[in-house]
Amino acid sequence: MSYRVLHYINQFFAGIGGEEKADISPEIRDGLVGPGQALNPALNGEAEIIKTFICGDNYFANNIDAVCAQVVALVKEAKIDALIAGPAFNAGRYGTACGAVCAAVAKECNIPVITALYPENPGVDLYRKLIPIVESSDSARGMGKAVPAMASVILKFLKKEELCKSDHSCLMEKGIRINMFYDENGAERAVAMLVKKLKGEEFTTEYKMPVFDRVEPRPAVKDMSKATIAIVTSGGIVPKGNPDHIAASSAQNYGEYDFANVKDLLQNEYITAHGGYDQTYANEDPDRVLPVDVLRDIEKEGKIGKLHNKFYTTVGNGTAVANALAFGKEIGQKLRDANVQAVILTST
């Protein structure tokens, strides 16, 4: 008996229409539609496309959760063994839809899923960490290459076989770093890599350098004497006892503390939770890291309008960028909601 496959495609590949039909609601058809004609033979009779789920790209974008739930329900009802979505090439909304249904089905039904996208498709960044994605070209001209690659990978998943080298080479990296033990120590690997680099031979770096977000500085505050100023620190200053248990390194949370009535951070009332520096001087006078005392002074002098009544704090030591980003977004939103005009960020 062959495995039962569900194929997800959009209105365009179903032959219903282009942009003008992008609002059509989901439709389920038995058997093959559109690219399924090419996909089904590539499954070698070991698996078969039983049903095709068709949805307009705009309809999907406006009803993501509902459509994903419909796909999940169909998978359960029709006893589907695997989901193939797309290929969506460089079609942004379609690619996002393919990623979303695959992620939902993988999570809810725990069956193999696959899609194929062009590396710059926005669906890649959204879903690469959650689902396997075959790298495709930017247009349907790449169908002939994407289809057999998807078929090969999904069949291996279904048969619980190891992926081969060519499977790995056509799958996009999830971007997850996994620890492993090499055969040689790091020093030997480094010198061997240098020898290759010097000879002009091919070498493989063990870590591709990341590309960073750069944040444009905001324009200066026009009138500080009317502005509400907040303070936020990655230096780990917390009330004594560290009530929110912020870790000394690799922080998983941040703290929010009201200090409306605090004029000065006193020794024994505030401490640092930070494990990356000698805590002696921060604990002796926590204002050294979070300068509440001088900010109260300039507030009194009228140089700033008001010091925001809450400060936010975390530990920057060995903390993953993804965590820092999530903290930053939440803190930023809270400050914006509180009509804060500017923030002083202190580190260590």
């Binding site: 990296e173 770093r177 090499y182 790091g186």
Partner: peptide, 8 residues
């Protein structure tokens, strides 16, 4: 040490 990492 032999410890290292790879991307998946």
């Amino acid at each position: 040490t032999r410890n290292g990492a790879r991307t998946e």
